[in-house]
Computed example of a mutant assay.
Amino acid sequence: MRLRTRSRSAGPPTGIPDAVPRVVHQASSWCLAYPDEALVERLPLLAAAVDELPAGRARDGLRTFLDHAAATPLAQLQSDYVHLFDLSRKQALYLSYWTDGDTRRRGEVLAGFKERYRASGFLVDTRGELPDHLPLVLEYAALADPDDGAALLQEYRASLELTRFALIEAGTPYAGVLEAVCATLPGPSPADKAAVHRMAAAGPPAESVGLDAADPRLLPLTESGRS
């Protein structure tokens, strides 16, 4: 996954307030992508960058995952990733999956992600992923359009917080990465899932395509979806 520009360069951040979330978003993007040799090679660089962040939730969360990744064989990291994100619906990394499920509306939402990427002037190589895949959104926020990227993450704050709670419940160090991402957004994180439901202010859409009412993809934003 990489972003390429036709007409402008992302360039280095010019000030600390802008630099911190961009560092967090880029580091989190790499950490949440499928682990490969490139991640292993980047671990020292990531650790050094994270250690320069201000003390707090973002640095602690990323450091928790990086320490785990450095101490875990790549084959195990890959197996854990597949089990956690590919074989389970509970920890989905697709932002609109939490809010729109498998509905007709979701196609429109995904098209909206693509339009925002195009409007930034960047060409996006999704490598076969949907445009709402969190690592891609985070890289967009870090490199392409920090302002709109941050706004996009805030729009899907409920999805991020629900993913955070799901990863905490799964007992995985990946929860630290979501802690870091959420720490870059305005205001405190909700204390529990009920608070996330109030934040979302609505449940998932009623219209479903090929899913029964008990499908977990339709439940995370409702009280009945708590586990």
Rank of each mutant, 00 (worst) to 15 (best):
R118V: 11
R105Y: 01
Y117P: 05
G121Y: 14
D100C: 06
Y97Q: 10
T99C: 01
S96I: 03
K90T: 05
S88K: 15
K90N: 07
F122W: 15
L95C: 06
T103D: 10
A111V: 15
Q91I: 01
S96T: 15
W98K: 05
G112Y: 14
T99W: 02
A111E: 13
R89I: 07
T99L: 06
S96F: 07
A111Y: 08
D100T: 02
T99S: 12
L93E: 11
G112R: 14
A119M: 13
G107A: 10
A92S: 15
E108R: 08
R118M: 04
D100W: 07
A92N: 12
G101R: 03
F122G: 01
A119K: 15
R116L: 08
D102L: 14
A111D: 09
V109M: 07
R116I: 13
L95F: 07
Y94M: 04
R118D: 08
D100Y: 12
S120Y: 08
G107N: 09
R89C: 00
A111G: 11
R116E: 09
Y94R: 06
G121E: 11
K114C: 09
G121V: 11
G112F: 15
R116P: 00
G101D: 02
F122A: 10
F122H: 06
R118Y: 04
K90C: 06
Y97M: 07
G107F: 11
Q91R: 12
